[in-house]
Design a protein around this nucleic acid. Structure first.
Lengths: 236, 236
DNA sequence: CCATAGCCGTTACCGCCAGTAACAGTTAAG
DNA sequence: CTTAACTGTTACTGGCGGTAACGGCTATGG
């Protein structure tokens, strides 16, 4: 993390001159992320730091007070995008409906979200955090949430839950790749991609569940899901 | 494409002084790609051009005689990797066996391939060609082959084939994401990931086929596949 | 037989862009 | 009234992708 001066003080007597900025820093950082999002929307996922700074009405060194390097800034944008997507996706999924319907609504919510900020989405697809920290980039964040939901559900049902992680990662990759293809080629309407993607995902889930000996209808009640979700998706 | 001097001559009277190099150039280019692969294997997917040149025992300008820019070089490496993967994958898939078995063998062949050159694989996952040419990077190459196979199969069966492309892209994304997760975390044995990935893919295919009104057993004979594959995968 | 066309390869440079140094001003806490 | 944190600037460094400009080798063409 980019650290401002006061972090050098090692937790000794709390000095008001330091703490009075705590709130400010957060909001400022958010503003900068916002500016970065605007810049990326406008100039594509490969904008230079200079352009982002300009969009924020600020010079580079200011930016570097809040983000250690470009990677960290991009990671923050990625998380912003991931939250954007997950907020809608979860809202669509955590409803009372058949699994098929929930998948369909989730997929549509997802496609709608990435359609609004295609460039940010591309960033999310491409960015890899250097220092292997999961949760650092948006993609990993989404995968972690999926893994958690899947894992909890499987454990709840008393079946082998080890597949949760690979499946979560795979699902994310599936969605990202389909989304990227759709956005960059625009050769198919949103509802059409949605239909195909929904079918694919649903059948993968359905068949896998069946193989584990669980009738899919056991999942029609979404009761257990919210708890396992909140701690990760919500912004800190 | 990177072009050497003789390309400036616009196809006029064939001069032996030009054509005598034709064979040489190809082999040389291949050597350089090989060197790049070695360099990437050794130093990760973010090697500098200088290191690649060094590995090839050559200075940068030489490299740039064969590749217009870093992107083109990386694209060539990506294609190399894609071919490496597809050769094995197709060999495993185009056999007489149940669909499930073929998927399983394909998945295992795939995992084996990426295990041998993890860094090249990472490059393949990450690299995006700038100038939107499909087939330029390895990922797109694989997706195109999948799309072709799926599309031909669906058309052969007389059902809606429009899903071939999104499904192909999605499948590739699914595989790449799972592979990347597995390689970078190494928290699961190859056979285990293979099992989970196989189940997921198989059920997606099976369920989707069923939804289209096709019994999956109709696909157990792999007769039609080879033709649609060769023109794309084979190296020119 | 020598000019020519293409290759071989080098060193030394340019230009871009991420990241930094150094400096000056402001505001509120101690 | 000092001090700690912010505000912000301009102008630099350093790495790396890419290029210019040079000289030498070998086989084809007339």
């Amino acid at each position: 993390m980019a650290r401002l001066t006061h972090m050098a003080r090692e937790g000794k007597a709390p000095d008001g001159r330091s703490s009075r900025w705590d709130a400010h820093r957060e909001v400022r950082r958010a503003e900068l992320v916002d500016a970065a999002v605007r810049a990326i929307d406008a100039h594509g996922p490969d904008v230079g730091v200079a352009s982002i700074a300009a969009e924020a009405g600020v010079s580079k060194p200011v930016l570097y007070r809040y983000f250690a390097d470009k990677d960290e800034l991009y990671a923050a944008v990625g998380q912003w995008g991931a939250d954007e997507v997950m907020d809608r996706l979860l809202a669509a999924i955590l409803t009372e409906a058949s699994v098929r319907d929930r998948v369909e609504r989730g997929v549509d919510a997802y496609l709608g979200a990435i359609e609004e900020h295609p460039n940010v989405f591309l960033l999310l697809v491409r960015h890899r955090t250097g220092h292997g920290d999961p949760l650092a980039d948006g993609k990993a964040r989404i995968a972690a949430t999926f893994a958690r939901v899947l894992g909890d559900t499987l454990r709840e049902l008393g079946v082998d839950a080890a597949g949760a992680e690979p499946w979560a990662e795979g699902l994310v990759g599936l969605g990202l790749a389909t989304g990227e293809w759709w956005l960059s080629r625009q050769t198919m309407t949103r509802t059409a991609v949605g239909r195909y993607l929904t079918a694919f995902v649903f059948h993968a889930l359905e068949g896998t569940a069946a193989e584990l000996g669980v009738p899919l209808s056991a999942l029609d009640a979404p009761g257990l899901v919210p708890d396992s979700v909140s701690p990760i998706t919500r912004r800190s």
